[in-house]
Amino acid sequence: MHELSIAQEIINIVKTSLPDGHQKVKNVKIRVGKLSGVLSDSLKFCFESIIYQTELEGALLVIEEIPVQIKCNECNSISIIDNPFFQCKNCQSFDVQLISGKELEITEIELED
């Protein structure tokens, strides 16, 4: 539901990161964790809607989805989980810490040649 404001934040950061007299923006690369509360397709749609008929029109939002990764505090194994259970896949313990999945970061802006 808040993808529109997230898209606006991305555009604000991109605009302030561009050098003077820059070429057209081709791609904006971001990392979105599966536990970030952001839906990638919706975010792309909002991004395209906001940049329509602006200097950024045509830029693509390239999203790298980051899986939810946990580390077990008992056996130290690392598991990737694709269901909501925060449980170690090795020893079944629920005593785990989150090591990735909450990311919401801009990593790169690619400009045209």
């Binding site: 950061i13 070429q23 970061e105 801009i106 790169e108 802006i109």
Partner: peptide, 9 residues
Amino acid sequence: PVITIERKV
């Protein structure tokens, strides 16, 4: 040309 930024949204 690529601008690397690594910033939280």
